[in-house]
Design a protein around this nucleic acid. Sequence first.
DNA 1: CTTCCGCCCGTTAGCGTTAACATAGCAGGC
DNA 2: GCCTGCTATGTTAACGCTAACGGGCGGAAG
Lengths: 347, 347
Amino acid sequence: MPVPQPPVPPEPRRPLTLRDVSEASGVSEMTVSRVLRNRGDVSVATREKVLAAAKGLGYVPNKIAGALASQRVNLVAVVIPSLGNLVFPEVLAGVSETLEDTGLQPVFGVTNYSPDREEAVLYEMLSWRPSGVIVAGLEHSDAASAMLRNAGIPIVEIMDVDGEPIDSVVGISHMRAGREMARAIVAAGYRRIGFLGTKMPLDHRARKRMEGFEAGLAEAGLALADREFYSGGSALAKGREMTQAMLARSPDLDFLYYSNDMIGAGGLLWCLGQGLDVPGKIGLAGFNGVDLLDGLPVRLATMDACRREIGQQAAKIVAGQSGSGLIGGERIELTPRLQPGDTIRKA
Amino acid sequence: MPVPQPPVPPEPRRPLTLRDVSEASGVSEMTVSRVLRNRGDVSVATREKVLAAAKGLGYVPNKIAGALASQRVNLVAVVIPSLGNLVFPEVLAGVSETLEDTGLQPVFGVTNYSPDREEAVLYEMLSWRPSGVIVAGLEHSDAASAMLRNAGIPIVEIMDVDGEPIDSVVGISHMRAGREMARAIVAAGYRRIGFLGTKMPLDHRARKRMEGFEAGLAEAGLALADREFYSGGSALAKGREMTQAMLARSPDLDFLYYSNDMIGAGGLLWCLGQGLDVPGKIGLAGFNGVDLLDGLPVRLATMDACRREIGQQAAKIVAGQSGSGLIGGERIELTPRLQPGDTIRKA
DNA sequence: CTTCCGCCCGTTAGCGTTAACATAGCAGGC
DNA sequence: GCCTGCTATGTTAACGCTAACGGGCGGAAG
């Protein structure tokens, strides 16, 4: 009759394995494995004995071995261009939150808007055989697209729906967002319109927004009266500087469209500081709906990019909880709502 | 004489293994492995043949099997309380950037300031046998501390140095940051001082800052004249509301210390909107040094928390690049610099 | 010519876990 | 008593890769 072992103080060096727990509790490794995974029938007595031994030893299972044996991995790869842009942490938060009680674990990678790095990051992540991939954008290198297509797991491209997805896609149409903003501005009677944005040839979504915006203006026979791009630095400060520069250069502008809310807020603060009549003499609008703006003295017109919801929906798809019954190839287009704020004249 | 195989179009279903590449290129699996890892001697001819086959097939190595066999894992676990607080994405960015060319890959987990979730997240991450752990804060559950201590890998606790680290630590002293801010405020002649912060009993760093602040005031025989806490919502908006509320309640306050820059900025905007004399009649200060503030009409006094640098240093330690020669147990205390901005009277 | 060494490559034996199957023990029906 | 059908546990063989070692081959050294 085996004497119950007292919990052994964790002997530091050799890493513990199932065998250690099995020896400490007097059952086979398989039974320990069953207990720790709550799978299969194990008597209550055995279960408790095993759990006590595992806790006493401080055993932490080795998922590497487990994943290899079971061919199942609870990781989800999440690939985003940047952490500096407010938007992506919010998406991550949505993903993280939704995955929380699915047993899935997000693994993040950052590409810095570089297709080469995206390819490298994806290769690295796929080599861990995750059970799904969430990746920002629809534009990838050929090699990256091929990898994703052949991975045999759910792929969700997020943020943007203007293009051909590999598998599933969750996002908004940035083209349409730009166009609708243009229409709203034109409808409010503005005519001489300037654009201020980031100088990032690889930020396809910003580009699409601008293209949509110009298309919207064109519908009314208008074109951009001026434009300016920046890169780096504090967005709020850049917004001030660019606004000042543009209005010095083109004093007759009556509207400024900013490619994101932070530079928009900077521009707004500058205009207010100058005592300009907003939205009477000059209107302003940004993009994103960052809740930060709720605290500004005047609310900037913007359009919600549904960031958190994008993360949530994408996570649901990889977790197989989308409720659509589809097995892939889902397409969820969210609709950004125009929030007119106080910086566009009422039509 | 083996005929060179033309690249086979990737047959979709069965996942590729080394064996497939080895068969396609006519060498052993071991040689393929060597080529793919750039390890050991392989002739140029063989190398090229193998690389061509691997690329042709679209082979992606299986790191799970590789890690199990080699007992080496290129993952670094990074555990943070929240993604909503601007601070942590910045730390992540520092980590991610520094790890970029070390072959190490960060894996992030979020605890929502819950010790239980922290424990669960750590257990989950340690079960992947990462080669290092970076975790925010020095306060952990007993079980979590034990796990970390027994993991046998570098552990770096970050953000905070006020306490007993498990292994290495990189951060600032929040106690001291609070105290120094108090001294600067007292030195500038302010006497009736209010505190505005988050209602988060589990945010130990915010608590330490406040304690340090009160200690600093006590040195001058002062105590907080009023205090207010919030939770949730847009920080900028909360800053406005709380400031308004506090000044309505305690109109004789001459200084407001905010536990973070966002609520501080909200308060600042409100004060400016009210036409209050800042910093003459009332002074303001925040904490963090978010570069966002560079764009405000008036620069808020703050203290840089060295977020990105914390991430970088922590990453260096786990990557073994700290340059200290130490094998663990490093302690890096960074010094937050007071940035007086325009919201404290010149002494 | 032999010996030795370095290059290039193959063979063997795990890494720690789990799937799948085998088996022991026991209750109950006939 | 024998077989059926459980439940609780053990045994075996992977999973895909790499560490460690072994060996053929060719040229340089003796």
